[in-house]
Amino acid sequence: MIDVIIAFDDEDKNLKIAIDLFEKVFVHQEKKNLKYPNLFFAMFDELSFSDYIDKNKNHFKNFFTFGNLKEILSVENLLDDEKFEIAMKIHSSWDKEKDIKKAWYSTSLSNRLSSIAQYEHIPLKLLSLGFGISKDDENDEVEKYENIIQKIKRENIGFEEFLQSGDYFALCNTEHRRWMAYHFINNWEYDDFEGKDKQEKEYKKSLKLHHCLTDFKNFKYDSVKKTFSYDFNAYEYIPEYLKGKYKVVKVSKENESE
């Protein structure tokens, strides 16, 4: 038995492909000796339609849906409440939509999971600069962290100068490589396009292609060269991400060695 898995970020595309396959493959169901593939296709938000397919197997014998965001992104199944809220803040830091929840629920699943992965990396970012996270009543040393970040930060510099900017480049490069590693592990690939047109960018992302999945030194276009600031934001905005949940504290040398 062959299984066909259809999992684009666009659930309308998944449904269309499934219907096309149904029309081309399942029209010969009267031929009992044929073996028909199972079609698994992602339906993220159309939950009522997904339930209808899954419950009516007489009509949809070889059809199965998966990817129900209500279940995947539930606190019980995947996220603790704090991780969920902080990942929302991370996403909103580069999304222009002012409503944090609206931005989160209107973006693609891949964007949400990417923000969750960035959340998971926060402790390592802090540790690299001699800090940690605490919920205890220790003194919040976020000002010390912010002072270090401001000393490293370089504003309004050109791309060539950025490549030679020491600690500033080192932090940006660390985050950029983490981001690339996450996407490569999840089967994304580099695609050489400038990425100015929003519709084109979204289409490429639906194919798991991205114009930034290469080393900084390989960036060609002016619009892409400006994106290194997003990588630094991943460090600079940490206190805002953690606000109300955690405290940023200095880590002792003993703890660093552990």
Score class of each variant (00 low, 15 high):
residue 34 L to F: 06
residue 109 L to C: 09
residue 113 L to H: 08
residue 36 Y to D: 12
residue 67 G to M: 03
residue 92 S to N: 08
residue 42 A to K: 14
residue 42 A to S: 15
residue 30 E to N: 13
residue 99 D to N: 07
residue 53 I to F: 03
residue 86 I to Q: 01
residue 87 A to Y: 02
residue 65 T to S: 00
residue 125 K to D: 11
residue 27 V to E: 11
residue 26 F to D: 06
residue 93 S to R: 02
residue 19 I to E: 03
residue 102 K to C: 10
residue 119 Y to H: 07
residue 16 K to G: 07
residue 70 K to V: 05
residue 117 A to N: 10
residue 23 E to A: 11
residue 116 I to L: 07
residue 55 K to N: 13
residue 124 L to I: 15
residue 103 A to I: 06
residue 61 K to G: 12
residue 100 I to H: 05
residue 108 S to D: 13
residue 74 S to R: 02
residue 106 S to P: 13
residue 97 E to L: 13
residue 128 S to H: 11
residue 26 F to N: 04
residue 86 I to D: 00
residue 56 N to I: 05
residue 45 D to A: 12
residue 50 S to D: 04
residue 90 I to K: 01
residue 58 N to H: 12
residue 39 L to I: 14
residue 56 N to L: 07
residue 74 S to A: 01
residue 73 L to W: 02
residue 42 A to W: 10
residue 87 A to D: 03
residue 18 A to N: 02
residue 63 F to Y: 03
residue 110 S to D: 15
residue 125 K to W: 12
residue 42 A to E: 11
residue 80 D to Q: 02
residue 92 S to L: 02
residue 31 K to S: 11
residue 16 K to S: 09
residue 121 H to P: 10
residue 100 I to C: 04
residue 49 F to N: 15
residue 77 N to K: 06
residue 85 E to R: 01
residue 13 K to I: 06
residue 11 E to L: 04
residue 122 I to G: 07
residue 75 V to R: 09
residue 61 K to F: 13
residue 76 E to A: 05
residue 12 D to K: 09
residue 95 D to I: 03
residue 109 L to G: 11
residue 130 G to M: 08
residue 87 A to Q: 01
